[in-house]
Simulated scan of single mutants.
Amino acid sequence: MLSRIVAGVDGSDASLAAARLAAAEAAAEHRPLRLVHARLPVADYALLLPPGIAADDALAPRALIDAVRKDLRRAYPGLDVRAVVTESGPAAALLRASRSAGLLVVGRSGLHPGRRSPAGSTTARVAAGANCPVVVVGPQLPEHGEVVVGFDPADPGSPAVPYAFAAAQWRGSSLRICCVRPVDGGRWPDDATARRAVSEAVAGWRAAFADVPVAIDVLAGLDPVARLLDASVEAGLVVVGEWDRGRADPGPAGRLPEVLVRNAACPVAVVRPSRRHTRRADPGPTAPAGRPDDPGPGTRRS
C-alpha cells in the first residue's frame, strides 16, 4: 500500500485548505488520508461549532474533525480518509505522525495567527523536524500555476528535485527549476553553461517524467529568497530542500525554507532527506510506508 498522507486540522481556514490539498493529492495518487486534530482550548471550539456542541468538552473535538472528514468524502467519493483526535500538543502529534507518513500537509497559521511566535510556531517546528516532506498551505489555494523548485548546485541529489517532478506530473503542470546558487566554486559561469550544468544534473528525472514540461531559470547574482518569493506569486507550489546542512556560512539561501514557509504566496513543500534511513537513489514522494500509522498515546481514531 502506498504511504499515507497526513493533514493537520485545527479548524482554521489555512488548516482546512491544507486538508483539501491533502485530499486532492491522496485521491489522485490513490493513497490513504489521515486527519490529525490536537485538542484545542475550550474557548476556541466556540468559534468553530454550534454552542451546544462547543460546550461539550468530550464531543467538540470529534465533531470538528468528523465534519471535515465528511466534507472531504463528499468531494472525493471512495477516498480512504480517517481521523485521529489526540491529547498531545499539535506539533508533537504531527511530528509523531510524520514518522510513518509519505507526506504531511499543514496550514501556515492557526486560529490565532497573531499569537504565534516567529521561532516557535507549530508550522515552523513541523517543517523543520518532520520525517517526511511537509507542504505548508495558506488560507487560499491557487487554482493553477507551475511548480517551482529551488535547485542548489551544491546538492544536485536533493530529494526536492524528484518530489517537484512528481508534484508537477500529478498536477498536470509545468516545472520551473530555479538555480539560485553559484555553480562553479562561488564564481558564476555564463548563463548557458550554468543552464547546461543544471540540465545535466536533472537529466535522469527529466527522462523519468518525460510528460512534464521543464524550464530552467538561472538566477545569477540575485537574492534567491527574494526571487523564489517572486516566483511564488504565480506558482501553484514552491519546492525547497535542505539548504544549510551545517555550513559555516550558508548565506541567504540558508534562509530559504524558513522565509518561504512564512511568506510565500502559494503552498510550499519542504523536502529534506529522510531521517528514517540513509538517502536512497530514488527518494520519491510516493515510496511505500515502512509501518502503520502510529499517532501515539492519548489518541482516538475513526
Results as ranks from 00 to 15, higher is better:
Leu237Tyr: 03
Glu25Lys: 13
Val81Thr: 03
Ala210Lys: 01
Val134Asp: 01
Leu219Trp: 10
Val81Glu: 03
Val6Thr: 04
Val81Cys: 14
Pro77Phe: 08
Leu103Thr: 00
Asp184Gly: 06
Ala154Cys: 01
Arg301Cys: 09
Gly236Arg: 05
Ser158Val: 05
Val180Lys: 05
Val68Leu: 03
Ser302Glu: 14
Leu21Arg: 10
Gly78His: 00
Ala166Lys: 03
Arg206Leu: 01
Ala43Val: 09
Ala124Arg: 06
Pro32His: 04
Asn263Pro: 00
Val238His: 05
Arg20Asn: 11
Val261Ala: 11
Glu25Met: 13
Ser199Cys: 08
Val239Cys: 00
Glu143Trp: 10
Ser199Met: 07
Thr86Gln: 02
Arg245Gln: 12
Cys178Leu: 13
Val214Lys: 12
Glu258Trp: 11
Leu64Trp: 04
Gly221Lys: 03
Ala97Asn: 05
Ile177Asn: 11
Trp205Met: 10
Ala60Ile: 12
Ala14Tyr: 08
Gly8Val: 07
Ala281Leu: 15
Arg245Tyr: 05
Ala281Tyr: 09
Val68Thr: 12
Arg280Thr: 14
Ala226Asn: 14
Arg31Phe: 06
Ser98His: 07
Leu111Gln: 07
Ala124Tyr: 01
Pro267Tyr: 08
Val202Gly: 06
Thr193Asn: 00
Val271Pro: 00
Ala130His: 04
Ala22Asn: 07
Ser121Pro: 02
Glu25Ser: 13
Ala46Phe: 14
Ser158Phe: 11
Ala43Leu: 14
Asp56Gly: 04
Ala207Pro: 05
Pro61Lys: 01
Ala231Tyr: 06
Tyr45Lys: 07
Ser121Glu: 00
Arg300Trp: 14
Arg108Pro: 02
Arg262Ser: 10
Val271Gly: 02
Glu87Trp: 09
Leu40His: 05
Val134Cys: 02
Ala24Met: 11
Phe165Ile: 07
Leu111Pro: 01
Arg115Ile: 10
Asp230His: 13
Cys266Val: 01
Pro273Trp: 04
Gly129Lys: 02
Asp13Thr: 08
Val212Trp: 12
Arg181Gly: 11
Arg176Gln: 12
Arg227Pro: 03
Pro162Glu: 11
Arg279Ala: 15
Ala7Leu: 09
Ala127Pro: 04
Tyr76Trp: 08
Leu49His: 07
